[in-house]
Amino acid sequence: MSELKFKHVTKQYGDQAVLKGVDMTWAAGHLYGLLGRNGVGKSTLMRIVNNRTFATHGSVLLDGTSVVENEAAQNRIFLMSDAMLYPADRTVAWVFQITKALYGDFDDTRAAHLTRVFKLDPNQRLGRLSTGYKTIAKLIVALCVPCDFVLLDEPVLGLDAPFREQFYQELLATYTERPRTFVIATHLIEEIATLIDHVFVLADGRITLDEDTESLMAKGRVVSGPAGLVRDYLSGVNVLRTRSMGGMLTAYTLDAPLETPLPAGVTLEGMDLQRLFIELTAEVGTDED
């Protein structure tokens, strides 16, 4: 099966290092979430994959060969970003046609369905579309290209809630019809938490979390109760962060001792992906004592 591998990818701008050795593997047929704080380098990473910018060190390999200046590899990769790189005086229909010519194929049936569902007139010129509809046009292209690795960098930026929901449904529809890899970089973690099967967290220039969503959710716990009891329960356990409110302590952890019986007065709850991400990437240290 196809594999896209990052080997110690570094990106430096002058003396400032954005990516400091990213090691990661994207396998075929997965829905990946690439999470990270603002400015951490998610977009840069995706642009390196799509041959829009160069890594300072390290390599990105598709089935063993570097993707840099490699048209055969780039033919199997597609990046949808906030940049609008199509000419403004051309129509949406033209973009579909030219994409088909350049990628060898295009899901015309699905494109027709999507333009209908999103109420986008394919004969509209790109320059005339609102920001939201420009995004929709690009999204439709991304969902219809025959590529094995489709990278979506903030795909729903500027879309209203109904359209966002529609997008996730359409994404799943095309994914189940033709399984391929989608990598979604987004800040709207809650919305994609249940549809991605694997999570990558990019922090401080490296991948700090690389795990299946299911096992992550099975480990994430919020422990709440009287401060003393909670601390006893979690003594020796790695805690992501704690929050205190009077005598009550709330702790966020991935290593709760689930076999140990819970003391009375202490509650144990699950932690959703967004909460996990917030606690994981918070500044080191707690906000009390």
Binding site: L172, E191, L195, I196
Partner: peptide, 8 residues
């Protein structure tokens, strides 16, 4: 999966 945005 589609209706509830869940992984298939």
């Amino acid at each position: 999966a589609r209706a509830y945005a869940l992984n298939p």
